[in-house]
């Protein structure tokens, strides 16, 4: 079941994801490949972990 606050939370999550990825892209352009990859991972987990908790644990 999707409620309004879940929707808001989802929007925030997507926003944070996009923002973090853009920081990763910026880092990539600065020739810090490893750092960029780690930021992408971070962004992914910041999206996936709460979604997992939201959808399956509760």
């Amino acid at each position: 079941m999707i409620t309004v606050d879940m929707l808001v939370a989802f929007i925030i999550l997507v926003w944070v994801f996009v923002y973090t990825v853009s920081y990763g892209v910026w880092t990539w352009k600065k020739k810090n490949r490893l750092g960029a990859v780690m930021i992408f991972l971070l962004a992914l987990s910041a999206l996936a972990l709460p979604l997992y908790t939201m959808l399956f644990r509760y």
């Binding site: 994801f17 923002y19 780690m38």
Partner: peptide
């Protein structure tokens, strides 16, 4: 995190990291 991966700014990491910590704390 930012020092390990030699990132220039740490502030953009705060929000995603906070979300991760939040999610883990609910485990």
């Amino acid at each position: 995190f930012s020092k390990t991966f030699r990132l220039e700014y740490y502030r953009p990491l705060i929000i995603p990291m906070a979300i991760i910590v939040f999610a883990i704390s609910l485990w």
